[in-house]
Amino acid sequence: MQIHVLASGSTGNATYIEMENTKLLVDAGISARRIKQSLDKIGTKIEDIDGVLITHEHRDHVNGLTTLLKKYNLPTYTQPDTWQAMYCRNALPETCCKLLSDSFTIGKVKIEPFSISHDAADPVGFRLYAGSSKVCVATDLGFVTPTVKAALALSDAVVLEANHDVDMLKNGSYPWYLKKRIMSNRGHLANTDAGWTLARLDRKAHTHVFLAHLSQENNSLELAEKTVADILTTQGCKLGQDITLHRTYPEQISGLSEHK
């Protein structure tokens, strides 16, 4: 199992996941050139990607999609309403545009999308299964519903949003309407929300967690990690043993390789 968060944040999001030799890309919010360069660095050819999964249509998740599909003809899956709402839909090759179903398989990976709460047409997270491994991606969500909690449970690795510190956001420079949007049930997950979600989660013996989609203005790597870590330790979780926290970056690859 390999997970490499190629980019994470408001400037662009893309995550590479490999399970049982099946190679997947979740979101394509950075340029196709940068995706290719990032994959080259981890020893993967972009032409070998078996499928692209799109969570929702916001530009920081699809900005590189037009070039990616035109140049490499990669099969790409998302919800019907997401395709319809996507700004670049008319520029995409029709043969590449696939629809999600409740459960489907690419290569040796079983994929189950699940609904999340965000201000997009029909946003989803993804559960990925292969062999005995499970990986879950859940970013851009205003709050954790029972559906999301069930999806995250018993994962080997989770990519979970820790977007903002509430006090930094409230006291920051954003206009009030934007602060309200971010803090709403259809906005973004705060550090504390991420921490309590993980603390209350049904977990395997050891879970890897990538803290993702951090705001560059209303958060910091150190603060997100400390907030989540403090909540986990107060709830009896042993960091590095029960849960390992991984940072993600807007301009830098973060990764995990495990063999089971």
Rank of each mutant, 00 (worst) to 15 (best):
M1I: 11
Q2Y: 09
V5M: 05
V5R: 00
L6I: 15
A7P: 00
S8Y: 05
T11P: 00
N13P: 01
E18G: 09
M19K: 04
E20R: 11
T22D: 08
K23T: 10
K23P: 07
L24K: 08
A28G: 07
A28F: 03
S31I: 04
R33W: 12
R34S: 14
I35C: 14
Q37P: 01
L39Y: 13
D40M: 10
I42F: 00
T44C: 12
I46C: 08
I46M: 07
D48C: 09
D50S: 14
V52Y: 05
L53M: 12
L53A: 12
I54V: 11
H58R: 12
H61A: 09
G64S: 05
G64W: 08
L65N: 05
L69I: 14
L69P: 03
K70D: 10
Y72D: 10
L74M: 12
P75N: 12
T78H: 04
Q79G: 01
P80W: 01
P80Q: 02
P80M: 02
T82S: 10
A85H: 08
R89E: 13
N90L: 10
A91Y: 11
P93Y: 09
C97P: 02
K98T: 06
K98M: 11
L99A: 03
L99E: 12
L100W: 06
S101V: 06
S103P: 00
S103L: 09
T105V: 13
G107K: 11
K108Q: 15
V109H: 04
F114D: 07
F114S: 08
S115M: 08
H118D: 11
D119N: 13
D119A: 14
D122K: 07
P123A: 09
V124H: 14
R127P: 02
L128R: 10
A130I: 09
G131S: 08
C136Q: 03
A138V: 13
T139V: 15
L141K: 05
G142T: 10
G142H: 01
G142Y: 03
F143S: 14
F143P: 00
V144K: 03
V148M: 12
A151I: 04
L152W: 03
L152T: 04
S155M: 01
D156Q: 07
D156F: 00
N163E: 15
V166N: 11
D167S: 13
M168A: 15
M168G: 02
L169G: 08
S173E: 13
Y174R: 13
P175Q: 12
I182W: 06
R186L: 11
G187W: 04
L189W: 04
L189K: 04
N191E: 04
N191L: 02
T192A: 14
A194Y: 01
G195M: 04
G195D: 07
G195F: 05
T197N: 08
T197H: 07
L198G: 09
R200A: 15
L201M: 15
T207D: 03
V209R: 00
V209Y: 05
H213L: 09
E217K: 08
N219V: 09
L221M: 07
E222D: 14
A224G: 08
D230E: 15
L239Y: 01
G240E: 07
G240Q: 02
D242T: 07
R247W: 03
Y249Q: 01
Y249P: 06
P250L: 12
P250E: 14
E251M: 10
Q252A: 08
I253M: 09
S254W: 01
L256P: 01
E258Y: 02
K260F: 10
